[in-house]
Write a protein that binds this DNA or RNA. Structure first.
Lengths: 69, 69
DNA sequence: ATCCACTAGGGTAATTGGGGAA
DNA sequence: AATGTCCCAATTACCCTAGTGG
């Protein structure tokens, strides 16, 4: 079988996102409900999150830069 | 007429669909059994899925609106 | 014909969603 | 306002063996 790169983008599970942020998975769910985080749903209703978006939030949009003095 | 089959007839394997949704291939099988996803069977009993349908489910039917609070 | 990754099954753990309360 | 925890029901993940796909 071919290894078709049919992937448009990588997705993360709730627990994975929670681990990255060091929070409870339920908290990630609340972020999704609040629209703070984009969520894709499986056909069973479980949420998946865009890895690119998560990493961007983690790397952070540095609002305040510790200037390398 | 074109000698090429319609592009919308493109089929995906269970593992490909699973990768797109970030779930286990067996989960895709359950979706097919539950009638949540159209499945075509090979002569040997393996399932194939319509790419167009999968992409539509992924892009998804916007069910969530980000409240621009 | 062989080779081997993938899939169909079935059964059992682990995760998730949802509401509600501290 | 924002988290973490408890409960329960549903969904999903991992285990195996045998058969299919190319």
């Amino acid at each position: 079988m071919s290894a078709h790169p049919a992937e448009s983008e990588a997705l993360l599970t709730p627990s994975e996102v929670a681990s990255l942020f060091r929070v409870d998975p339920k908290t990630v769910t609340r972020w999704a409900k609040a629209g703070k985080l984009t969520s894709i749903r499986t056909l069973g209703g479980h949420r998946r999150y865009r890895e690119a978006e998560v990493r961007e939030l983690l790397d952070g949009i540095p609002r305040q830069r510790a200037t390398t003095a």
